[in-house]
Amino acid sequence: MSELKKMLTSFKKEGYKPVYFLMGEEPYFIDFLCDYFTENVISEEEKSFNQVILYGKDVTVNDVISQARQYPFMGDKMLVVVKEAQDLGKTIDQLVDYFKAIQPTTILVFCYKYKNLDKRKELYKTLSKNENAVLFESAKVKDYQLEAWIKSFVNDNGLEIEPKAVAMLAEFLGNDLSKIANEIGKIKIILNQNKLITADLIEQNIGISKEYNNFELINAVAYNNEAKAFQIAKYFALNTKNNPLVVTTALLYNFFSRLLQYHGITYKNAGANPAEIAKQLGINPYGLKDYQAASKVYPMKKVSQNIAVIREIDLKGKGVNGSLSHDDLLKELIIKLFR
């Protein structure tokens, strides 16, 4: 996110470079920048003759270079955008030839999604070092970074959001950034003059239950609230499509794995700084209190046992060593976690 902001700032301060190569596993940032270029570089009245959109599956690199070397018509610059550039395959390496005679009046943008260029190849080295090019890597937002990203995105849109609402979005939508951005965009319209996104708004407009979700299940487990955990499990059993067992076991496994790590950190360094512990666990500092509480309920030996239980239930849910119903598997999971 910080690299994206730096690039947007550079546009305003320094103008545009002749070549932008946007690559990486996260399509959201690439799409965002692509939209920015197509909306801002060429004026509306010039777009029909000075803005060209190409698609990797329909052209060759030579076609792209030929288009890029044309002069703008009745204007000072031309924009050439190659969407789905990953479909150019290995021929993308031929782009090196363009740097032998760059057209300074053209802004050439490649949208190369879901992977990165081979860093050993000449094209990557050229893009990295050439003063006329910008190589932007769109990396996936890691799970532990997701809540911070959501909060930052919301703030950038002039809004505030409750911590619980952040957790609900992260848990329900995962790190599908495009979907998260779309849902927040819808809520922004609904909010009108209000600025705060609450758990109630998430529940009413996105369909995520604020009481019965994996975030609340983990909270119930962490704070030794067996009754609430069973209530949530019962709700999950009645709504299996929106609450697949594999997601529940994965999130519980992550929780107890981090709890095991928390025990290890605090055992070795009882006076460790909370911010440093949160960093080592790869979590938002806000969530550290849940691990502090859970560590008093589950000693290290019980944590290890629970990790084994979660693996066992996950395998059973996949048809290994049994064929119990979703409801029965959840009941067995909750009982074994608490007992």
Rank of each mutant, 00 (worst) to 15 (best):
D63R: 07
S48P: 01
Q70A: 13
D58V: 12
V61H: 00
I65C: 11
V61W: 01
Q70S: 14
V61A: 02
K57D: 12
F49C: 07
V80R: 07
L54Y: 04
L79Q: 04
Q70T: 15
S48E: 05
V82R: 09
S66C: 09
S48W: 01
V81Q: 12
G75W: 09
D63H: 11
A68V: 09
V52A: 00
Y71W: 11
Q67E: 14
V59W: 02
L54R: 08
S48N: 08
A68H: 06
F73C: 02
S48K: 12
V80S: 08
T60G: 13
L54G: 02
S48I: 01
E44I: 13
E46R: 13
A68Y: 07
D76C: 03
D76G: 02
V59E: 01
V52Q: 11
P72F: 12
V64H: 12
V82Y: 07
L54V: 08
K83M: 03
V82H: 09
Q51A: 05
V82S: 08
F73I: 14
V61M: 06
G56A: 10
Q67A: 12
E84M: 03
Q67N: 11
L79R: 06
P72I: 15
V61F: 02
E84H: 11
M78R: 15
V52L: 04
V61Y: 00
K83E: 05
L79S: 06
E84P: 02
